[in-house]
Design a binder for these strands. Structure first.
Length: 274
DNA sequence: CGGGCGGCCTGGAGGC
DNA sequence: TGCCTCCAGGCCGCCC
């Protein structure tokens, strides 16, 4: 579900509804997520605090709270964070509920439980092991073809794996890696050692364009992504290759192919991507 | 050391 | 209708 655009869409949808609100109490279920939930830390850091700001780092949504605490939420593959009326019934796979003032709650649902909810001291987020190794933000000021070329120096593997390595570049997952490579005209299996500076520039531009467009369109809802208010995105209609095997390439008309690399499906146009 | 793969989970889709 | 297999947006650890 969630790559950078979806998490950013979630952040923007929740920000005006959460900033300034007080968390009165927290309910945490019995099942564990990708890691065991640190229930005491979550309750101790969240209860009674106000939401000061919402940030995003990589695919984590960060809720900065009063009391120098930050909640970090990662949606994994199937997580959803949504606002609901306080009286709404608990849903299947609802693992946490943050009860707010004004009769609302913020709930975290995650059927597959690949997600995470962490409570950290605000000043230590960057040093936490979940964050310390994260790479460059593709929508940050310093991101360019030069960045990609520098990060690829001395490496050899396929460019798609390179793009999806969160220690190098964050936020680009399986959908947006395929889409960016198609827009830049680069085959997903091309070795990073064989990409020219001009192509790195094209790829950086394609990544920024695809991510920004996806954010404007509310993210990609293939199955169940929604923003914090339960609204679906519509960038799926703008996808040019992802999940379109057998369809014509919108640029050249050749048949889009699906191939598995590193255990993940890649979609590409065999004619426009070399 | 870098890259590839299996595993973690549940649910939905499609085949028979 | 039911059962089976495959597949899924992320990430980590193990293996070569």
């Amino acid at each position: 579900m969630p790559e950078l655009p979806e998490v950013e869409v979630l952040r923007r949808s929740l920000e005006p509804r959460l900033v300034g609100r007080r968390i009165r109490s927290v309910d945490v279920g019995d099942l564990e997520l990708r890691e065991p939930l640190r229930r005491q830390a979550i309750r101790r850091r969240a209860q009674g605090q106000r939401v000061i700001s919402l940030r995003r780092r990589s695919k984590y949504l960060l809720l900065d709270l009063s009391g120098e605490s930050t909640l970090a939420v990662h949606l994994g593959m199937s997580g959803r964070l949504t606002l609901a009326p306080e009286r709404a019934a608990r849903e299947p796979h609802e693992h946490l509920a943050f009860h707010l003032d004004r009769g609302e709650k913020l709930r975290f649902r995650d059927p597959r439980r690949f997600g995470l909810v962490l409570a950290l001291p605000t000043g230590r987020v960057e040093r936490d092991p979940h964050f310390a190794q994260l790479g460059v933000e593709p929508l940050g000021d310093e991101f360019s073809g030069e960045t990609l070329e520098r990060l690829s120096a001395g490496r050899r593997g396929p460019v798609k794996s390179f793009l999806m390595d969160g220690r190098l570049v964050v936020g680009v997952g399986n959908i947006y890696a395929s889409e960016s490579l198609h827009r830049a005209g680069i085959h997903p299996e091309r070795s990073v050692a064989r990409i020219s500076r001009a192509r790195w520039d094209a790829l950086a531009g394609a990544i920024v364009e695809v991510l920004e467009n996806a954010i404007v369109e509310g993210g990609t809802t293939l199955n169940d992504f929604t923003n914090g208010l339960g609204e679906e995105g519509y960038f799926q209609v703008s996808l040019r290759v992802y999940d379109r095997a057998g369809e014509p390439c919108p640029r050249c008309g050749a048949t889009i192919r699906r191939r598995v690399h590193a255990g993940r499906s890649s979609y590409f146009c065999p004619r426009c991507q070399r």
